[in-house]
């Protein structure tokens, strides 16, 4: 017969062991790619005998990688910018409005999140071709703005809703007009949230494949699309090097978000 305490220890030990196994499962695939990126071999094999930087050099030298990386960055920055331009004012209005209509508009603005991108990409390509935009950077940008909007609206709306309207009320009582209140009171308070939302949008855009795939041409291919087609023909560590670079960008951006906005609420 197990004593009470023995059962207790068994459960705690079990949870600990389980959490360790879980951690290995979560981290191993990430570590393995970073390790492969520094391999000197021209194929992926274990154990790695020689180390080198050559695959990072190849990223720079192999034109499709470099060109598509430029397209990816340009696209990410522009789509985050336009998504902010459209999303921030709407988020401010809606987080102070109540009622069924405001709720419905909010849900509508978040709905691109729930539509499979493959469906959205397919539908948008034909639609944009019909109205004369076709496979172009503009089309790609429009698609990415649609996908980015929910992130901006959510981050900014969430932050603004949690803030007391007291400061703005005080400013107005003290004689500020609407624009002054916005510029001196509201904007400084939501600046962090706007930047955080924009960075989320950047990360989403940089990693998007399913939308970009439909608008891909030699001048509009993004890095993940080029990586996907590269992976279909060859299997060398350059993919690992490109992934590592992307990982570093994402980690840095997320660190910035943490500073600006805090990843609070992650554990509830």
């Amino acid at each position: 017969m197990l004593t009470h305490r023995a059962v207790e220890r068994l459960i705690n030990g079990g949870l600990l062991f389980y959490t360790l196994a879980f951690s290995i499962f979560m981290l191993a695939p990430i570590l393995i790619v970073v390790i492969v990126a520094f391999s000197a071999n021209s194929y992926v094999s274990f154990p790695i005998e020689n180390w080198s930087w050559r695959w990072f050099q190849r990223l720079y030298e192999y034109r499709p990688y470099f060109d598509s990386f430029v397209v990816t960055l340009k696209l990410a920055v522009l789509s985050a910018f336009f998504a902010c331009l459209l999303g921030v004012p709407a988020a401010l209005v809606l987080s102070r409005s109540r009622g069924k209509f405001a709720n419905a508009v909010m849900t509508f603005m978040l709905s691109p999140l729930s539509i499979p991108s493959i469906v959205l990409g397919f539908a948008m390509l034909f639609y944009l071709s019909r109205i004369g935009l076709g496979v172009s950077f503009i089309s790609l940008l429009i698609a990415h703005v649609v996908a980015s909007i929910p992130y901006i609206v959510r981050t900014v709306g969430g932050q603004y809703r949690s803030m007391t309207p007291g400061f703005e009320e005080s400013a107005m009582i003290l004689g500020c007009n609407g624009w002054q209140t916005f510029w001196y009171v509201t904007f400084p308070m939501i600046r962090g949230a706007i930047l955080a939302g924009a960075i989320f949008a950047l990360i989403i855009s940089i990693d998007n494949v399913s939308l970009s795939l439909f608008f891909s041409s030699p001048t509009t291919a993004t890095l993940p699309v080029v990586m996907l087609s590269y992976l279909e023909s060859s299997f060398d560590p350059s993919i690992a090097a490109a992934s590592t670079v992307q990982l570093i960008i994402a980690v840095v951006l997320l660190f910035v978000i943490e500073r600006l906005y805090g990843l609070r609420g992650i554990t509830g």
């Binding site: 459209l86 102070r96 508009v105 959205l120 948008m124 639609y127």
Partner: peptide, 24 residues
């Protein structure tokens, strides 16, 4: 208080109707 003009919701709604709802 609501000092941001409500009309500022329009651009994004129009944008999403034209480039999100209509394609679908």
């Amino acid at each position: 208080i609501q000092f941001v003009p409500r009309s500022l919701v329009l651009p994004i709604v129009l944008f999403l109707i034209v480039f999100f709802v209509l394609p679908l």
